[in-house]
Design a protein around this nucleic acid. Structure first.
Length: 486
DNA sequence: TGAAATGTTGGGGCG
DNA sequence: ACGCCCCAACATTTC
């Protein structure tokens, strides 16, 4: 832990920020403060280096806002946030040279590309005689520490969860440092504006800005709001997209504005009984953990079927249907509501994510990678662990995946979880006038009902792009071929 | 973290 | 009173 060993207390220490845009429970930052050395704080962006995956549009918007927020927090300590883009190793060496630092610290990353870049950075720094040191903070458990009895990584969630429980409670989160000793002397920084993270022509982020407050403070407020209400009844409430019954912490977690340790501890502190709704929420946090461990052990999770049996599967390459799905014009109200919520707010309720993902991969038989790419670009919470793992889970190609025959019926899902129609009416206003009875199946409404609601199928709202029964039969037939009994 | 088809049961209407 | 049928409600199986 002690980074001041073998270093000169007068020389600065560089703290690299990446997916940890916070001051509290930031072990790298705290270690830097405890060293007593002057701190150089730098956000380094390497998502545009070869091999990495560039951030999607929605996350670029969020990153811009979050960096502004982090810069303000650091400024209260008279610390400048230096911005740099490029290769991690090169930037670290350069910062060392520019500032005279003799130590560099960071919190670990777990995506294959990040791991590789950070490993290269570590040896380059060591070679240059600089003390490198990395910390946990993004995951509750290091992926190499959680193993099955046979010593391999888990491929099934339930035993994974049991292993987490058996491993004991995660460490307590750290408070934000009381003070940070600033490095004096200006360090050159790139300009946030020049990074062009915000959309223009057109500015589509208006709806997103209305919904979210990026930054550490916003993250903490979300957590408090969740614990003050929705966590009670979460077990059932989480499935109802029309009410604010989920935590909505995902984008904050993705950017590291809050750590899973902070969330875990706060939920535990608010938990008044074992095995209750709070526990259900912690299990969702464990799904995030599971997905990231999967990615760590399967570097190609985002591009290749986890289950290789699907490698020969003939997905349909239908641009028109894909486009209808993306725009929320499939003619199935719950699907369209979800896709429009995504487009408007940069986020989608989890229950609806499952429905729209099932619709793309099973009703439309379109490759899950198309859906994953679309989510990557439009979700403010898209990350390399959860997004591919969850898509593969729904498509049936993934670890502990939904069985091939599980095809969500968009009508029944809509009626079951949005029976009062709040969600569909909010995001698909052109059919808001339909009565509950036919809201999720407009094609069954009679002429009088349709005209009273001002709906003309095929004109004001699409005719369903596929017939459910037929699509289901096709999906079952196609998936049958790769059924795993050999 | 399904849905649909098929099977079973039991109450009530009715001859 | 009794058997028969219908059918909703629930359970099981199959996709």
């Amino acid at each position: 832990m002690d980074v001041s060993k073998d270093t000169d207390p007068g020389r600065p220490i560089v703290v690299l920020f990446r997916h940890d845009l916070r001051l509290a429970d930031n072990r790298a930052l705290t270690a830097a403060c405890e060293s007593g050395k002057p701190v150089v704080a730098a956000f380094v962006r390497d998502d545009q280096t070869p091999g990495a995956r560039p951030l999607g549009g929605a996350r670029r918007w969020w990153l811009h806002k979050s960096l502004e927020s982090l810069a303000v927090s650091l400024k209260r300590h008279q610390v400048q946030l230096v911005l740099r883009a490029g290769e991690m190793r090169r930037i670290a060496l350069s910062l060392v040279e520019e500032t005279g630092a003799d130590a560099v610290v960071w919190n670990r990353r777990y995506d294959p590309c990040g791991v590789e870049a950070d490993t290269a950075m570590k040896s380059a720094l060591a070679e240059a005689g600089i003390a490198p040191r990395s910390f946990d903070g993004f995951l509750l458990h290091e992926p190499w520490d959680v193993k099955t009895g046979a010593g391999g990584p888990f491929r099934v969630y339930s035993p994974f969860w049991r292993a987490l429980v058996a491993a004991g409670e995660p460490r307590k989160p750290l408070p934000a440092p009381g003070s940070i000793r600033p490095h004096h002397g200006r360090v050159s920084t790139e300009s946030l504006a020049d990074w062009n993270l915000l959309p223009s022509h057109p500015d589509w982020a208006g709806g997103i800005a209305e919904e979210w407050t990026p930054g550490e403070t916003g993250a903490g407020e979300r957590l408090e709001q969740f614990l003050a209400g929705p966590v009670d009844g979460y077990g059932e409430g989480r499935d109802v997209p029309g009410i604010r019954s989920t935590s909505r912490l995902s984008p904050h977690l993705a950017h590291g504005e809050i750590s899973p340790f902070q969330i875990w501890a706060a939920v535990r502190a608010a938990q008044d009984a074992p095995e209750n709704d709070a526990e259900k929420f912690l299990k969702e946090l464990a799904w995030r953990e599971f997905s990231w461990h999967l990615l760590f052990h399967n570097p190609h999770l985002a591009t290749q079927n986890f289950n290789e049996r699907f490698d020969g599967f003939e997905w349909k390459a239908d641009r028109k249907l894909l486009r209808a799905w993306q725009k929320g014009e499939t003619g199935y109200p719950i699907v369209d509501a979800g896709m429009r919520e995504l487009w408007r707010t940069g986020w989608m309720h989890n229950r609806v994510r499952m429905v729209v993902a099932s619709f793309l991969s099973k009703h439309l038989l379109i490759d899950w990678r198309e859906g994953e790419k679309w989510f990557w670009d439009t979700l403010v919470d898209a990350d390399l662990g959860n997004n591919p793992a969850s898509w593969q889970w729904v498509a049936g190609t993934g670890a502990d995946a939904a069985p091939y025959f599980r095809v969500f019926n968009p009508v029944l899902q809509g009626e079951k979880f949005d029976g009062a129609g709040d969600y569909v009416r909010r995001f698909v206003p052109e059919i808001a006038g339909l009565p509950d009875k036919v809201l999720h199946r407009p094609w069954e409404a009679d002429g009088a009902t349709l005209s009273r609601a001002g709906v003309k199928l095929g004109e004001t709202y699409p005719v369903a792009v596929v017939d459910h029964q037929q699509a289901r039969d096709h999906a079952l037939a196609a998936y049958q071929n790769i059924r795993g009994d050999a």
